[in-house]
Amino acid sequence: MNILVQIMHLLRKEITLEWRQKYALSGILLYVLSTVFIVYISFQNIGPQVWNVLFWVIMLFASVNAVMKSFVQESGYRQLYYFQLLHPIAILLSKMIYNSLLLLLLGGLTFVALAFIAGNPVQDAGIFALTLFLGSTGFSITFTFVSAIAAKADNSSTLMAILSFPVVIPILLLLVNLSAHSIGILGSTDIGDKTMLLGAVDLILVSMGLVLFPFLWRD
């Protein structure tokens, strides 16, 4: 079985699993909704700049919570089973792809909820969608890999935050910057540059992940 086929199988397994035990998915969705609601109650009047920052902060915390379980939830026996059957790269990539899809959905939901409650300041929908796409990939890559590291330790939820937040800050900074362009509070001068840079950072992190995961994996 080559890696691509393995990835497809694993992806299907992840999606079926998620669909069968809906509590995890609905838990995350409820998390986003209640966060947006709390934010709205506390702020009342949300300007474009605050909207932009709030959107990404909500995304950040929801993403950590959504991605954290990806390696932590797998039991030791199942890991052993995978180890004999599959290529480690297939496992990591399938989780990363699945998580980016999940985060894209999460981002869309956050956007809808925030736009419904606090208005929609986005002027250039294309750039915003691109930012959302790059953001969910970047978050998914970082958090998936860090959750693989954190799952090896006992107090994984604390470690998850300590390890991933510093690493994710450059991505977050670029995302806030890019989406500020789409909202129109920053002049659109170097969108291409920043998009390229974000892509490059994503690429560096994913290649580091692919090189290092096989070492992390064997127990």
Binding site: L174, K194, I204, L205, M208, F215, L216
Partner: peptide, 25 residues
């Protein structure tokens, strides 16, 4: 040792965008 080594390499790789690329922009 193993998990530490993996994270150390990962941390080093994320140091370059932090210290040299983002401040230039």
């Amino acid at each position: 040792a193993r998990v530490g080594a993996v994270f150390n390499i990962f941390a080093y790789a994320s140091l370059v965008p932090l210290l040299y690329i983002i401040p230039k922009l």
